[in-house]
Amino acid sequence: MSGVLNLVREDLRGFAGYASARSTRLEGEIWLNANESAWPNPGDAAALCRRYPEPQPQALRERLAALYGCTSEQLLLGRGSDEAIDLLVRALCAPGRDGVLYTPPVFGMYAVSARLQNAPALEVPLRDGPAGLEPDIEAIIATAKQGNARLVFLCSPSNPGGSSIGLAQVERVAAALRGQALVVVDEAYAEFADEPSAASLLPRHENIAVLRTLSKAHALAAARIGCVIADAGLIAVLRNCQAPYPIPAPCSALALAGLDDAALARTRERIALVRAERERLRAALAQLPGVRRVYPSDANFLLVRLVDAEAAFQRLLVAGVVVRDQRGAPQLHDALRITLGTPEQNARVLGVLATLEPAA
């Protein structure tokens, strides 16, 4: 075994996982191999749920592979990006030995998965500069080497910062950590950004993986479908570590319908609207007396520092608007994260925040 598979935990390299009743492709008219009911549930009008689903629905894998520019063998479906994060940590990090590096303030599931695996957490804070919250690439490389990192999570665009990481920077980290760590680029918000996907780097860097989700731009959050794109050998290992039937048949059918040509065309229109609203709202918020700073964003949200974040949060709640309180996150003691809504919803946010008092 060589290459990226050397990063898999030694005790899992030959692990075959659980062989479910749907693990092999069998043909027949009467299915009596999985202890399923012979009759559909009375509430299941389409009879979608009586049989166990495909472990990895091939039609959906192929559709997403075409969308993301990879092969279906390089893509593993899961329950949102969260499951992919957990699988990567469990499969690659030996408890108490292999570190997980992330860049706070950032999506909290990297730290949660590391904690559950008892993997050493390596934090390299984002730098707050004129261009926004940006990663310190040299510090990431140095900390990963010194701390025995097996996984390096780069969130691009970052949540909650909103900044993208250039492919040249991702490539620098991957090249520096070849043979030691897998560099995982979380692209949950990539559809709203201009930066190309890091999946394009896979042919040159087998120690890169990419996370994608249908929860954001594709508006399928409740379907809980995401994927990890990586070396085909690593994908096979992750599949062996995954629960038998991760994608419910109704969710798979919904995702395929939401990814047909007409749906994708509508999604592109909505992405364009979000991007336009993002710039409009950013400019308008920056003019308000109670706003200290609005960060540039490549995602579908804005990170906003306020003179009185508590007052802003409470006034928005009274107006029926729920935003994300970021004050407990590192470096963000005065910040709220505001998702871009419809133009009418964004206008309500502006109206409420316009009533805030300026700094004394």
Rank of each mutant, 00 (worst) to 15 (best):
L303E: 06
E279H: 00
L60V: 00
S20W: 10
A198E: 08
A286N: 07
A284T: 02
F15R: 14
A265I: 02
L202V: 06
R51Q: 15
D98W: 01
L238G: 02
R348W: 07
G258P: 01
N118V: 08
G96H: 03
G96R: 01
D128Q: 10
P157N: 08
G78F: 04
G290H: 11
P250M: 04
G78E: 05
G14R: 13
P244A: 05
A319L: 10
L306K: 09
Q117Y: 03
N148C: 09
S163L: 14
T339V: 12
R275L: 07
H333W: 06
A119H: 00
C93A: 02
L211H: 04
V124T: 06
G69C: 09
A335D: 00
L67N: 07
E357W: 05
A217F: 02
G290L: 10
A131N: 01
A38D: 12
I247Q: 01
A45M: 10
L220K: 06
G129C: 04
A46I: 06
A284K: 06
S200E: 03
D186F: 11
A354N: 03
D11Y: 12
G80R: 00
V173L: 09
V170L: 01
L317T: 12
E206R: 08
V323I: 10
R51M: 15
D128T: 05
C155G: 11
W39R: 15
A354P: 03
A276M: 10
R224C: 05
